Measured scan of single mutants.
Amino acid sequence: PDLGLTQLFADPNLIENLKKNPKTSEMMKDPQLVAKLIGYKQNPQAIGQDLFTDPRLMTIMATLMGVDL
């Protein structure tokens, strides 16, 4: 199971919303991170391994779920 990750990354406004959010806007200036996020739309399971190697993803996930870290 993808634990709902498919829906989190399926939002067509995902990148724009993250660019507008004060907690994630600075991160979204990294083209490699943006490319990763776009890739998760097609393969949400890929985030599982990346969560352990890129701490920014935890902040992004929390933001998408509405959790304040």
Rank of each mutant, 00 (worst) to 15 (best):
I60R: 00
P12N: 08
D2F: 08
I60M: 03
M61Y: 15
L8C: 05
L69Y: 02
A62D: 04
Q7H: 14
K36W: 04
L37H: 00
M28R: 00
K19F: 14
T63P: 01
L3V: 12
L57F: 09
Q49L: 11
D11A: 06
A35D: 13
M27K: 01
M27E: 02
A35K: 10
E26W: 03
L3H: 14
Q32G: 13
G4L: 14
Y40D: 01
M61C: 07
K29E: 14
P55T: 09
P22Y: 05
L33V: 05
L5N: 09
D30C: 02
I47L: 15
A35E: 13
T24G: 01
L37D: 00
T53D: 14
Q45R: 03
L51H: 04
G66E: 12
L33I: 07
L3Y: 13
P31R: 07
F9W: 12
L57R: 00
T6L: 14
K41Y: 08
L18T: 00
P12R: 04
I15R: 01
D11T: 05
L8M: 10
G48Q: 15
A62P: 01
Q7E: 14
G66T: 10
M27F: 15
K29C: 04
L51V: 13
L51G: 06
M28D: 00
L18K: 00
R56T: 05
Q7W: 06
V67K: 02
L5M: 11
T63N: 06
M61P: 00
I60G: 00
G39R: 10
P55E: 11
G4W: 09
D11C: 05
Y40A: 04
M58N: 09
L18Y: 00
V67Y: 09
Q45C: 09
I47V: 15
I15K: 01
L18S: 00
Q45V: 09
D30L: 02
N17R: 10
I15D: 00
Q49F: 12
L57A: 02
M58K: 11
P12K: 05
A46H: 10
N43L: 03
L64F: 06
Q49M: 12
L14I: 09
M65D: 04
L51F: 09
E16R: 07
M65P: 03
K19V: 10
M61W: 15
P31T: 12
E26V: 07
G39I: 09
T59L: 13
K41W: 07
D11I: 04
T6R: 09
G66R: 03
L5W: 14
L14T: 09
P12C: 03
Q7S: 11
N13H: 12
A10E: 12
G39E: 12
A10S: 13
G4Q: 14
G4N: 15
A62R: 06
M58W: 13
M27Y: 12
K19A: 09
K23H: 13
A62H: 05
M65G: 09
F52S: 14
R56P: 03
E16K: 07
P55M: 05
M27L: 14
G48I: 13
P1K: 03
Q45H: 13
N13W: 07
L64W: 03
P55G: 07
M27T: 02
D68L: 03
Y40M: 10
L14K: 01
Y40T: 02
G4Y: 15
A46N: 12
S25R: 09
P55C: 05
D11F: 02
P44A: 08
Q32T: 10
T63M: 07
M65E: 04
P44S: 05
T6W: 12
G66C: 08
R56F: 08
I60E: 00
A35F: 06
L5T: 08
R56L: 08
E16V: 07
K20C: 06
P1Y: 01
E26F: 07
